[in-house]
Design a protein around this nucleic acid. Sequence first.
DNA 1: ACCCTTGCCGAAACCGGTTTCGGTGTTCAG
DNA 2: CTGAACACCGAAACCGGTTTCGGCAAGGGT
Lengths: 363, 363
Amino acid sequence: MAALLDKITEGHKRNRVTISDMADALGLTKSTVSRAMNGYPDISQATQNRVKRMAEKLSYRPLSHAQAIKTGRTRSLGLVLQLSDHDAQRPFLAEFLAGLSAGAHAEGWTLTVAASSSTEDMIETFRALLRDGKADGFILPRAIRYDPRVTLLRDAAVPFVLFGRQDDETNCAWFDILGEEAMCDAVRRLHALGHRRIGYINGGTKYAYAHLREDGFRAGMQDVGLEVDDALIIQDAVTSADGAKAAAALLDHPEPPTAIVCGVDFAALGAYQAAAARNLSVGRDLSIIGYDGIPEGAHATPPLTTYQVDNKAAGERLSSLLIRRVRGEPLEDLRETALASFVERGSIGPVPDTSNNTNKHET
Amino acid sequence: MAALLDKITEGHKRNRVTISDMADALGLTKSTVSRAMNGYPDISQATQNRVKRMAEKLSYRPLSHAQAIKTGRTRSLGLVLQLSDHDAQRPFLAEFLAGLSAGAHAEGWTLTVAASSSTEDMIETFRALLRDGKADGFILPRAIRYDPRVTLLRDAAVPFVLFGRQDDETNCAWFDILGEEAMCDAVRRLHALGHRRIGYINGGTKYAYAHLREDGFRAGMQDVGLEVDDALIIQDAVTSADGAKAAAALLDHPEPPTAIVCGVDFAALGAYQAAAARNLSVGRDLSIIGYDGIPEGAHATPPLTTYQVDNKAAGERLSSLLIRRVRGEPLEDLRETALASFVERGSIGPVPDTSNNTNKHET
DNA sequence: ACCCTTGCCGAAACCGGTTTCGGTGTTCAG
DNA sequence: CTGAACACCGAAACCGGTTTCGGCAAGGGT
């Protein structure tokens, strides 16, 4: 009889300890246990401790679905990916997810992800997740300048946190890596190596990061006292093909740059091709600095000097921030930045001998 | 008064239509509505239709958390990633997730993902997700030969579906791409081009796919009447560095192969390097075929001939299979396969002139 | 005409929590 | 000594569903 019962309960719900079990074990009522678990002030400290110790002992954790039906919150973070994004943030995704998951797990939260193809689709996806209470808040990767997701979620009064800074920063929580500092630093380093004509290949201008990085590049140029030649700035290179084309344009300039800073590593790798096509040796004839720290860069020849961003750490921070946001902390306290770390490899070097610089192609 | 009420309800739960609203609108009770929605046989067909039409009209969807508390199921698929995996299935992840998400969304399900670093961690992650009812079943990417996840989940009587085939196929639902067919086909094509000495660089032998693909390679060799020289088979190359080393070993063989088949594209790209280091022109002096269809392959010089797998479609199929599994369909009906599609690019060609084949290095 | 199915649905309990409301027992001022 | 304030907890309603149980009416057999 008892065995039969065991078998039945085992099959479906494995003897999970419920709040009633807790109440029985403690000689209290469900309501008291609930309020103790949630730290309500009208439960004495002594009782709270007693309850929490018992929870520990019985390894009781309130079932999030059960609470959700009353509270509406389910302790889960939402992430909707956009495949149309350039390369679907491919290199980052695994690490980024790992970070998000780790940050969520640390607080006992989970991560629900959805993918969308179009922007329309994306909005619909948000709506569906919200309507079904599948996410208490969202992480918004790859901030766009005037991000439609932000207006959508803000109107719906749904918590979110941006990865990247939006134009209208004041109204959101965000985490970002200071790409502009990296770009600025890149210029300084190149200047220290003697470079005076420095080109810049920017990333996708629809994204917020591109503008920031360009600003950083310009700031660096100003710092070292160089004037920027707008002909040496090219926009919207996010793939290696884009980068090759952009670099080609720079190198075919009457006064070509001796160094190129790239907003994204893929573009930098494209620049390698353009250099090779012109018989320029990267690191000697042409210095290249990228940004992102994709693995392909390390395996290129010569290995790409770049600024490495820690996407796993970013994910962790974002999870943490969003959880705090859902818990009600004010926006102002929920903004963090981090720096990308410089990784010096073989793709930069001192400026080449300038005597026959313009005819370098014939070397 | 009414306005105040509106404001309050709006803030927290946006006037979601509940089962009681349905009951009122229809003049039925909650229980009838519930059973009608779930297609219970003791509700007349007429009433079922009436209820479902009304659900459509009011756009009512039962709240999954609310049902979960009684049923234990929440209409969500679980996916736990292992970062330790070679390159964390990096190239595939975005597409794969998109497919999973699409497949889930089509049935009104969602996807919750978690990441784990170690195997221990992974088991703990499964447990946590199950204990909190965050997933009704799991998708298990990258099948391992004797997969610990399989035993874990089978013991716990939790539905799952494998991406890839396990050694013990009879006990699971799975979806897989027939990599062995691709490898076999590769050999046939190379043979048709005149190649007689063909090397094989396999992927990670801990994974199930590697054994299957090697079998496919051997089967192809047998098909065309070639004997396999075990010295021309190298195992466990999953990165481009691995591939370069493996290919180097093959090319330094006294009787080097004129063609190399690779179990994974990354290894194939590594073989490019080994070829370049020996002044062999890929596509002329040495033919290379890969498998996976990573984007890097298309941009290599020459572009890599490979077998493209559609990871998005795979994800969709896996979601669908798992959902059916959770709904109770028997294992036997839940096995599907697909083929990778051959993509001919520049990395293969007719066998080079054999007269000075062994001295090719000096060319 | 009577009983027994069978089809169909309502009433109410239940799931595992949260929250409102109220009722004790102390304490402390008057 | 009384009354009010306060700290603390129990009783019960509630959230949005599912499920068990039972009741009623129509149909079918004798």
